[in-house]
Simulated scan of single mutants.
Amino acid sequence: MQTLVCQSFPAWDTPYVKSTVEILKRVSKTKRVIFLDYPYTLKDLWSHPNVPKKAIWSRKPRLIQTGFGEIEVYNFLPVLPVNWVNSPILFRFLMWINGIIQGWTIRRIRKQLDPKETQVINAFNPVNGHFTKTFWKGFKQNYYAYDQLEATAWAGKWGKHFEPEFIRSVDQIIVSSSGLRRKFEKLHPNVKCVKNGVSLEHFQHPTMEKPQTKKMGYLGAFDDRVDLELIKQVAEAYPDYLMEILGPVKISSESFPENVFFLGTKDPSELNTTVQDWCLCLIPFVKNEFTQAIYPLKINEYLAAGKPVVSTNFADLSDFEGMVRVVESHADFIKGIKKEIRYNNRLKISKRISFAKQNSWESRAEEFLLALAS
C-alpha cells in the first residue's frame, strides 16, 4: 500500500475544519497516512489550549479512526519559539535547532518507509519544510498551499522568505485556488490545483422550505479578511434582522450595531443546526492580496445547506456563477441581500444542494490523489 506522509501546519486537535485534514481522512480509505502534527513550541505547552501534552512526550503515534480509514498521528518533541525573532541570522540558527528536534521523529518514521512507495506532503509549512527537507532526501516531496502565505499575519513574517527557497526543492506544488496557481506557475514548473470541498455529512438534511426567522449569517473565522464597514452597513440597513457570526473571533468585535451577534466556535457537527435558521449567508470579504487567492471553504458549506449567498468580488468565483450573487460594491451587496431573500424558492434550494454535492471532500480527495500520481 502506498504511504502518504503529511508534515502539517494545521494542528490535528484544533476544533475547526481544515482542508489538509479533510482530504487526508478520505485518502486514508485506500492509503496509509502518517500525519506529522503541528510542531508545538515550549511556549505552547503553557498557553495553547489544544496541545496534546501526553502525545508530545510519547514515541508512539496516536491511531485515529476517521470513519474512512486510520491515520497515524505523530507529535514532535516541543521546539523553540521563534516568531519573536527579528534577526535573520538568529532565526536560521534557532530553526536549525528546531529542524534537528523534528529530525529525531522523522528518522524514526523513515525506518518504516520505502521511498519508492511514499510521498511527503508539506502542508503550508515551508519554514519547517526548509529546515527538515534533508531528512526526506530520496522521497518525492510536495508542497500543499491553500493561502497567500506572505499576506498572513500568523505565518507571513518568515514564511515569505522561506517559501521561495523551499519550493525550489520540492517535486510538485498543489494549490487550492486559481489565484495561487497563477502565483506558483511563475515559480515552479509543476503546479496542480485541487480546490476546497465540503463535508456533506455536516450539512445533511437541509430543509427545502424558506426559514421563517429573520436571520442572516457568516460562518468562519471573523478576522482581517472581513470588511468590517460592510458588516456595519448591512446590519444598519436590515435592523429587523439578526446577523449571526458563527466562528472564532480574531479581531475586535466591539462597536457593531446591536443586531450583530457573535456565537463563537462550535463543533463542525453542530454547524448545520445554526445555519438552517439563516435565510441568507454572507461572504463579506475585503479584496486584497491575501483574499484574492482564497477559495473559501464556507461557500460550499452554505450551498450544501441550500442557502442563498451574497459575496463580495474578492477573488475568482467563476466556479459559482449562477449559484452565488457576487457584487462589486457595498450598495450592491445590500441590495443583493434583499433580492436573494425575496426570490429564494424550493427549486433554487435544490439546485444549490446538488451543486455542492459535486464539490464534496470525497471528490477533492480523488483529485488530490490524481495530482500526486501525475
Rank of each mutant, 00 (worst) to 15 (best):
Leu187Ser: 06
Lys195Ile: 12
Ser199Val: 12
Trp158His: 10
Gly217Gln: 08
Val175Lys: 02
Phe184Pro: 12
Asn196Val: 15
His188Gly: 09
Leu200Ala: 06
Glu165Pro: 02
Gly197Met: 08
Arg182Phe: 11
Lys183Ile: 15
Val226Ser: 07
Asp147Trp: 04
Ser199Ala: 14
Glu163Asn: 09
Glu165Leu: 15
Pro206Ala: 02
Gly156Phe: 07
Thr213Ala: 13
Ser177Trp: 09
Gly159Gln: 03
Ala151Val: 06
Gly156Pro: 07
Glu150Thr: 11
Cys193Glu: 15
Val194Lys: 00
Asn190Pro: 01
Arg225Lys: 14
Leu149Arg: 09
Pro164Gln: 00
Lys192Arg: 14
Gln172Leu: 03
Val226Ala: 07
Leu230Cys: 09
Val170Ile: 12
Asp147Tyr: 01
Tyr146Lys: 02
Ile167Ala: 01
Gly220Phe: 06
Leu219Cys: 11
Asp147Val: 04
Lys186Gln: 15
Arg225Ala: 05
Leu200Ile: 15
Ser177Gln: 05
Ile174Thr: 10
Glu163Asp: 12
Asp171Met: 03
Val175Tyr: 05
Thr152Gly: 08
Trp154Glu: 13
Asp147Cys: 02
Asp223Met: 04
Lys214Phe: 10
Asn196His: 14
Ile167Gly: 05
Gln148Phe: 13
Cys193Ile: 14
Gly197Thr: 07
Lys195Pro: 01
Glu209Asp: 14
Ser176Phe: 01
Lys183Thr: 14
Gln233Val: 02
Phe166Cys: 03
Phe162Ser: 03
Thr213Pro: 01
His188Val: 09
His161Asn: 07
Ala151Ile: 07
Gly220Ser: 04
Lys210Gln: 11
Asp223Ile: 02
Cys193Trp: 07
Lys215Pro: 01
Thr152Met: 13
Phe184Gly: 10
Leu230Tyr: 10
Lys215Gly: 05
Met208His: 11
Leu180Lys: 04
Thr152Cys: 12
Lys186Tyr: 09
Ile174Cys: 09
Arg181Trp: 04
Phe184Asn: 07
Glu185Trp: 04
Gly197Trp: 08
Asp224His: 15
Gln148Gly: 05
Lys183Asp: 12
Ala155Ser: 13
Val191Cys: 06
Tyr146Asn: 12
Gln148Glu: 14
Lys215Phe: 02
Leu149His: 04
Ala145Met: 13
Leu149Ile: 15
Asn196Thr: 14
Asp147Ala: 02
Thr207Phe: 06
Leu200Arg: 05
Glu163Pro: 10
Asp147Gly: 01
Phe162Tyr: 15
Val170Phe: 04
Lys215Cys: 08
Cys193Tyr: 01
Asp223Asn: 15
Asp227Met: 02
Ile173Gln: 03
Pro189Cys: 08
Ser169Thr: 13
Glu201Ala: 10
His205Met: 11
Gln148Ala: 14
Asp223Gln: 11
Lys195Ala: 00
Lys157Thr: 08
Ser177Asn: 06
Met208Gly: 09
Ile167Phe: 09
Lys214Thr: 05
Lys214Gly: 00
Val191Asp: 04
Arg168Phe: 06
Lys183Ser: 06
Thr152Phe: 07
